[in-house]
Simulated assay, not measured.
Amino acid sequence: MPPVGYSGPPPSEPPPAGWRPPTYLQPPPPRQLAPQDVDKIEAQEKDARTVTYGVGLVAAAVLVVLSCLLCSRVLF
Rank of each mutant, 00 (worst) to 15 (best):
P2C: 02
P2H: 01
V4R: 04
G5Q: 10
G5Y: 00
Y6L: 04
G8D: 00
P9G: 15
P9V: 09
P10N: 13
P11E: 08
P14D: 11
P15I: 03
P15A: 07
P15Q: 09
A17Y: 06
A17P: 02
G18I: 04
R20V: 05
P21L: 08
T23A: 10
Y24E: 01
L25V: 14
L25Y: 14
Q26S: 14
P30M: 06
P30Q: 11
R31Q: 06
L33D: 12
L33C: 03
A34M: 01
A34K: 15
A34P: 00
D37K: 07
D39Y: 11
D39C: 05
D39E: 12
K40V: 02
I41H: 14
I41M: 15
E42R: 15
E42S: 09
A43I: 10
K46F: 14
D47Q: 14
D47R: 01
D47H: 11
V51G: 02
T52P: 00
Y53C: 05
G54P: 01
V55Y: 04
G56H: 09
L57Y: 09
V58L: 14
V64F: 09
V64W: 06
L66R: 03
L66F: 13
S67Q: 10
L69A: 11
C71A: 12
C71T: 04
C71D: 02
R73M: 13
R73E: 03
V74P: 01
L75T: 04
